[in-house]
Amino acid sequence: GRPPQPKSVEDLLDRINLKEHMPTFLFNGYEDLDTFKLLEEEDLDELNIRDPEHRAVLLTAVELLQEYDSN
């Protein structure tokens, strides 16, 4: 089946190999997954995450988090 739900933002970023963005998220108040899963493209602009590939991966991760919630 699906991988288990990540336990933290750090756990999530670790899985998608984008842990380099951890300080950015923490500094901007994305300390838990409840906050993280509200992330949208405009937020990525504000966080200055410009890499299109990173953005795509992050937004996909957000969608997956929302799916875990609805099940």
Score class of each variant (00 low, 15 high):
G1Y: 14
R2W: 05
R2F: 10
R2E: 05
R2P: 05
P3K: 10
P3E: 13
P4E: 15
P4G: 13
Q5H: 12
Q5A: 09
Q5M: 12
P6C: 07
P6R: 01
K7S: 12
K7E: 13
S8W: 00
E10Y: 08
E10L: 06
D11R: 00
D11H: 03
L12P: 01
D14L: 09
D14H: 08
R15H: 09
R15G: 09
R15E: 12
R15F: 10
R15K: 12
I16C: 12
I16M: 09
I16W: 05
E20S: 09
E20W: 01
E20L: 06
E20C: 11
E20F: 07
E20G: 05
H21S: 03
H21I: 07
H21E: 04
P23F: 08
P23G: 13
T24M: 08
T24S: 07
T24G: 04
F25C: 04
F25Q: 03
L26Q: 11
L26E: 11
F27Y: 14
F27N: 15
F27K: 15
F27R: 15
G29N: 03
G29S: 02
G29F: 00
Y30Q: 01
Y30P: 03
E31T: 15
E31Y: 11
D32N: 12
D32K: 10
D32R: 10
D32W: 04
L33Y: 00
L33F: 04
L33D: 03
L33Q: 04
L33V: 05
D34Q: 11
D34V: 04
D34G: 08
D34W: 04
T35D: 14
F36E: 05
F36V: 07
K37C: 08
K37R: 10
L38F: 10
L38T: 15
L39S: 02
E40D: 13
E40V: 12
E41K: 09
E41S: 09
E42V: 09
E42T: 13
E42H: 13
D43G: 08
L44P: 03
L44Q: 01
D45K: 11
L47C: 06
N48Q: 08
N48C: 10
N48S: 08
N48M: 07
I49F: 02
R50T: 15
R50M: 14
R50L: 14
D51A: 05
P52V: 07
P52K: 10
P52N: 06
E53Y: 06
E53C: 10
H54Q: 13
H54G: 02
R55M: 01
A56D: 12
V57A: 15
V57N: 14
L58R: 05
L58M: 04
L59S: 07
L59W: 02
T60A: 15
T60S: 15
T60W: 08
T60I: 00
A61E: 14
V62H: 06
V62P: 07
V62C: 10
V62D: 05
V62Q: 03
V62G: 06
E63S: 13
E63C: 07
E63W: 03
L64Y: 12
L65I: 08
L65Q: 04
L65S: 04
Q66R: 15
Q66E: 05
Q66C: 08
Y68I: 11
Y68T: 13
D69T: 09
D69N: 09
D69I: 02
S70A: 10
N71I: 11
